[in-house]
Every structure is written in structure tokens, then in C-alpha cells.
């Protein structure tokens, strides 16, 4: 048997909360270990059930020197004792054993919080698995997935896929792989539309964004989707209120640098920039009317109206009317 030239990094830190990526990191660690030793196996253990003694047993080289990957889950909950044991081992890593520490980046105890920094210092290979929240990151992820599966795509297809599948990475990855297999690698918007219909993720914010710019048709359509998907009425009403008050606050400040405005209003700069764009076409009279509309719909969805669905639609229409008020 020939030994390949790769030796897996003996100490790895997987930090973040995105389950799919964590799973992949562990899988990669195992695969790398198997390149070195095909009999290597994976041991998963939660930090809560782990004692320093058990850890020592897990990471000790076995009699027949077969490879092993030990994944310690939930390291953010580590107590002082076990954290010390992990760090102690990291200084004298055993041959053929890969220790993968999974940490969510948080931690309530001092030991749990300090573990990532200490492991980095000890030379651990770090894999970041932060939750993907930004739209652009999610698009990049999907594009990457399709490429990994051996397909080609364009931006329209990516947006359509995210619209119809949702934001869960596992589902997105699975859908991407499936699409590549179904279409012989040419994933374009038409192909996505053939296999996926409807909308998976509609938030109150999406409704509010359309309503505030005076796009009545778009807002009503999004609202119907949101209701269909069971988005709580209260969330939509709150999003409407938030959009109106943000625009009103930004519009009230007059022309100014978005960054200094953001500091003054206590809002993130991107939100201010967006609100400046949305505030075009709004007059003070219209904004004042809109404030009353969102206050009223806030009461309506909490039981003041006979039918909350209708109350929301009515509010969207009234917002559009307020938008045209001069």
C-alpha cells in the first residue's frame, strides 16, 4: 500500500452555525483522513457528555494505528475542565488522529467563549461556517453549488431558484444538484421555472418594500403570497409600519450624507440609503396619512378588524393612495 502525500491537518476548528457547511467540513475532514488511511472512521461526541478522561481515550493512538476523526460538537458549551483538556491535547497532537472542534461562535461560559481564539493560536485550521443571511452570499452559494455539480447557470436562474425554493441551504443545494442532473448542466431560468413554481419565502418586508414605493400590483401580489405561506399578519403590519416610519424619518431630515444620517438616526447606513431611494415621490402630507394608515392596520391585525387579510390589503391600497397625495 502506498501512502499518499497528504496528511490531514491534525487540529481543525469549524466555527459558525450553518449546519450544511458544518456537515460538509466534517465530511471533508473524514475524506482527507481516508486518503491517508482508508480505514479511518469518524467519532462524533457532544461536549456535554465528554469528560477529560474520555477525550484522552478518544484521541490516543490505537494499537493498530488506524486513523480516526474525532468531532467534538457544541464546543461553545465546554466547561473549563474539558476546554483545558482540548487545549492540552492540541499542543501534543497524536499521529493519525484528526480532532475537529465544532463551535457556534458564541458561548456562555468563559471557557466556551475563549476556546476558538485559543485553538487558532494552537495552529488549528479554521473553517468558517457563518449563517448566510445576505442575498448576494446566498446567490453566490447557489452558483457555487451548480458549478460543483458540474453545471452552468445565469443570474436569472439563481434568483428564480432562491425565490421558489427558499433560504434553507440544504434545500438549495439539493435543488441545485437535482437541476443539474435534470438539465444536463444547462441551468437557466426557463429550466428552473419548469421544475419549480410559486414562492417559498415571502417576508413582510418584501410586501412593505413594494407598498412603500407605490407598486400596488406588486405589493398586493406579494401580500397574497405571504398570506398563502402563513406569514403572520402582525409581522406584515409591523413591516409596513417600519417601512413608513423609516421613510418618514429619513425624508424629514432633508438632503444629507447617508452615513451621517445613519449615525444621527441610529439606523444602519444601508437602511438609510434604501429609505432615501424609497422616499422619492413622498410628500409630507402623504407620509402623515401613511403613518395613520399603519397605526390603524396595527390595531386591525390584532383583532380590531373583522378580517385581518382584508385589513392588510386595504392598508396597502391606502398606502398607495397616500403615496399619490400632494
Amino acid at each position: 500500500m502506498t501512502t499518499p502525500a497528504v496528511t490531514p491537518p491534525p487540529l481543525q476548528l469549524v466555527i459558525g452555525e450553518e449546519e450544511l457547511l458544518i456537515e460538509r467540513a466534517v465530511r471533508t475532514a473524514l475524506d482527507t483522513a481516508r486518503l491517508a488511511d482508508p480505514t479511518a472512521d469518524l467519532v462524533r461526541v457532544g461536549v456535554a457528555d465528554l469528560t477529560p478522561g474520555e477525550l484522552a481515550e478518544l484521541v490516543s493512538p490505537s494499537l493498530f494505528a488506524e486513523g480516526r476523526v474525532v468531532a467534538i460538537e457544541g464546543a461553545q458549551d465546554a466547561g473549563q475542565e474539558i476546554a483545558d483538556a482540548i487545549l492540552g491535547y492540541s499542543k501534543a497532537a497524536a499521529d493519525g488522529v484528526t480532532l475537529v472542534v465544532l463551535h457556534n461562535g458564541g458561548g456562555r461560559t468563559k471557557a466556551g467563549k475563549g476556546l476558538p481564539a485559543a485553538l487558532r493560536k494552537a495552529g488549528a485550521v479554521v473553517t468558517e461556517c457563518d449563517k448566510i443571511t445576505k442575498m448576494s452570499d446566498r446567490e453566490a452559494f447557489v452558483r457555487n453549488e451548480i458549478r460543483r455539480a458540474g453545471g452552468k447557470t445565469d443570474s436569472g436562474a439563481v434568483t428564480a431558484l432562491i425565490d421558489s425554493v427558499g433560504s434553507d441551504l440544504r434545500e438549495l443545494a439539493a435543488a441545485a444538484a437535482q437541476l443539474v442532473a435534470d438539465t444536463d448542466g444547462q441551468v437557466n431560468e426557463e429550466a428552473v421555472r419548469r421544475y419549480h413554481r410559486g414562492r417559498a419565502d415571502v417576508t413582510g418586508f418584501a410586501v412593505a418594500e413594494k407598498a412603500i414605493t407605490g407598486d400596488v400590483t406588486g405589493a398586493l401580489e406579494t401580500l397574497r403570497w405571504a398570506m398563502q405561506l402563513g406569514v403572520p399578519h402582525v409581522l406584515v403590519a409591523d413591516a409596513l409600519a417600519d417601512a413608513v416610519r423609516t421613510v418618514a424619518r429619513v425624508a424629514g431630515m432633508g438632503r444629507a450624507n447617508p452615513n451621517s444620517l445613519a449615525a444621527e438616526l441610529g439606523m444602519p447606513p444601508w437602511k438609510v440609503r434604501k429609505a432615501i431611494g424609497q422616499s422619492r415621490g413622498w410628500q409630507p402630507a402623504g407620509l402623515a396619512a401613511a403613518m395613520q394608515v399603519v397605526a390603524q392596520v396595527n390595531a386591525d391585525v390584532k383583532g380590531a378588524a373583522a378580517h385581518p387579510d382584508y385589513a392588510l390589503e386595504h392598508a396597502v391600497l391606502k398606502l398607495a393612495a397616500a403615496h399619490d397625495l400632494h
Partner: peptide
Amino acid sequence: LNVKPRIA
């Protein structure tokens, strides 16, 4: 009617 105080 439970409207959020800030909005009201």
C-alpha cells in the same frame, strides 16, 4: 388594542 406603543 395592543398597538405597538411607538407606532401609536
